[in-house]
Design a protein around this nucleic acid. Structure first.
Ligand SMILES: [Mn+2]
Ligand SMILES: [Mn+2]
Ligand SMILES: [Zn+2]
Ligand SMILES: [Zn+2]
Lengths: 133, 133
DNA sequence: TTTTAAATGCAACCGTGTTGCATTTAAAGG
DNA sequence: CCTTTAAATGCAACACGGTTGCATTTAAAA
């Protein structure tokens, strides 16, 4: 599906920066750091980038893969909508080359603790990617 | 063990702000947001707070429990040192009252993916704490 | 083509991260 | 208890992302 169709499906107007963001994130499971997005989208005002990322996240088009040392990484969602945000995957960062990717989880995670109720679980792993080991 | 002894054990000089940070974090598994620490430690320069948090983390006295929306939460380590940083626990945030705590994991986590090597895993869960459900 | 709610650009403010440098201080050694 | 000095602290300064208000532009419905 092309970017414009994706936007329409999520009730988002088709605008230049939205197409550019989807293009920048590509079609892979790789996440991009905010600074890199900002650089690729330097023609747009950073406030617009900020609000567009918020809108795309809210509508389930993209998600924040992780936040580390004040740096945020963004990636495309595979199958989210404004009412359903499900991420059955973990996030992995290669400590050698710095690449961040979304990886499928072998099985659905299930934790419990006395007295508390868990709604969602995020997993973040670090190590070496296939190119670096 | 008192705060001064803890600092000495980790090769840290006993200073006012270090004692104050350990005092602020208390003896529990509860994590404190940076802003709250900053408010409790307003008598110190924020640069000193910044560098002291870095030093305490490096030496294994405290750890950053989580980063969410640009806000960092800090908590005491239970058994870390400068050469060994092991956190066999998950982090939990109550979406109702906002409390963040370190929770023991039932079992050691083990994930794998083709081609990659995983060194460490962090788990972050959201839900309702025992006071809020 | 007209209309209008939504999107964008711009200015402005805030808080945190980060570094350099001068001053103060913890604590080791005598 | 003094002296000494590496480490810690305070202060200034800058970078950068988050956030909001408001005026202008624009996507797309009618
Ligand atoms: Mn992801
Ligand atoms: Mn913890
Ligand atoms: Zn790598
Ligand atoms: Zn609660």
């Amino acid at each position: 599906m092309d970017a414009a169709t994706t936007l329409k499906k999520h009730d988002l107007k088709v605008t230049k920066i939205r197409l550019a963001i989807l293009d920048a994130l590509g079609k892979t499971e790789l996440a991009k750091p905010y600074a890199e997005l900002q650089a690729m989208l330097a023609e747009f005002d950073r406030t617009t980038l900020y609000r567009t990322l918020l809108a795309l996240m809210e509508k389930g088009v993209i998600h924040k893969a992780l936040e580390e040392n004040g740096e945020s990484y963004y990636a495309l969602c595979s199958d989210c909508s404004i009412e359903t945000h499900v991420h059955d995957h973990m996030h992995f960062k290669c400590t050698t080359c710095g690449v961040v990717q979304c990886l499928d989880l072998p099985k659905r995670l299930k934790f419990s603790a006395p007295g508390i109720h868990i709604d969602s679980i995020e997993v973040f792993a670090k190590g070496q990617c296939s190119n670096c080991n």
